[in-house]
Amino acid sequence: MSSPLSRDEVAHVARLARLKLTNEELDLFTEQLGAVLEHATDMQSLNLEGVVPTAHPFGLINVVRADVVRPSLDHQAVMAMAPDVEDGRFAVPRIMGEAP
């Protein structure tokens, strides 16, 4: 049986996720991810006529909170997490392109 996932597809997803993979890792993950997908394709052998798609294991809907302000984090503590700070803001290197 052919792999449900090609090596190129894994390389593409890795690029989107900004992951640098070696050739060995690409082979390994193609095989491992393929096994996961193969498991999912087992579902396709079932007769699911009339079954509503489920995207969440909980039968909950409309989980909300009241629109009431809660304390935010201390500014100093927040900025202490930043690699670089300028003018109370997170300083980042030059951005290479516009936001989507």
């Binding site: 300028e86 003018d87 109370g88 803001r89 997170f90 300083a91 980042v92 290197p93 030059r94 951005i95 392109g97 516009e98």
Partner: peptide
């Protein structure tokens, strides 16, 4: 953004 050498972010 073009020509800038760095950016500051306010969340």
């Amino acid at each position: 953004i073009h020509g800038a050498d760095r950016s500051l972010v306010d969340y």
